[in-house]
């Protein structure tokens, strides 16, 4: 089984801690001049998203996690599973609710998402940074008011709710940043 020594630790390295795949976020080497060297490591559990710190004795080895990020096209959901397809091999993968998590409110059919696979199984789904989604519910738009400030909630076709400017109407398509959940621009008028 592949493993990494602490001197190979670097940001982004994938390792297994207590049975779960984790990604190294930060690695700090500390050592009293005449004493034991340690690596203080900040890790993210790739299944739960938990970020925490753990200290390793320098020289200690940690099992490598076979984790791979793959771009896949979102196909559909049957309510319990979200189905994705590799755009070149047409290979299909189904992700459960735990893996899809917050991403599900941004998933639109045919959009390219990043799936994190651990031993071939999806453990997390990252939607594209920007998505274009149709507004299905919001208060009527104020015509001509494209410059004034102010915002109102709008429900999108995927169920996500975002704050939009007052001139947005039902049927409009808007561009949203999925990392912040913020409205960016109107993409087309409904």
């Amino acid at each position: 089984m592949a493993s990494y020594s602490t001197n190979e630790f670097r940001r982004g390295l994938k390792v297994i801690i207590d049975g779960d795949p984790c990604s190294i976020i930060e690695n700090e080497f500390v050592k009293p001049g005449k004493g034991q060297a340690f690596n203080r490591v900040k890790l993210r559990n790739l299944k739960t998203g938990r970020v925490w710190e753990r200290t390793f004795k320098s020289g200690e080895s940690v099992e490598a996690a076979d984790v791979l990020d793959v771009e896949m096209q979102y196909l559909y959901t049957d309510g319990t599973q979200w189905h994705f397809m590799h755009p070149e091999t047409f290979e299909q993968v189904a992700a459960g609710e735990a893996a899809v998590g917050e991403a599900k409110k941004w998933l639109k059919e045919q959009d390219l998402c990043t799936l994190t696979l651990w031993n071939g199984e999806p453990i997390s789904v990252t939607p594209p940074n920007h998505v274009i989604l149709k507004v299905v519910e919001t208060e009527p738009g104020i015509r001509g008011d494209t410059a004034q400030g102010g915002s109102k909630p709008a429900t999108l076709e995927t169920g996500a709710v975002v704050q939009v400017p007052l001139f947005i109407d039902v049927g409009d398509e808007i561009k949203v940043d999925t990392r912040t959940g913020e409205y960016i621009a109107r993409a087309s008028k409904g």
Binding site: V30, P32, G35, Q36, K57
Partner: peptide, 11 residues
């Protein structure tokens, strides 16, 4: 190793 544990508390 007692001194390794002492160092860990120290740092």
């Amino acid at each position: 190793d007692l001194d390794a544990w002492r160092d860990l508390v120290w740092v």
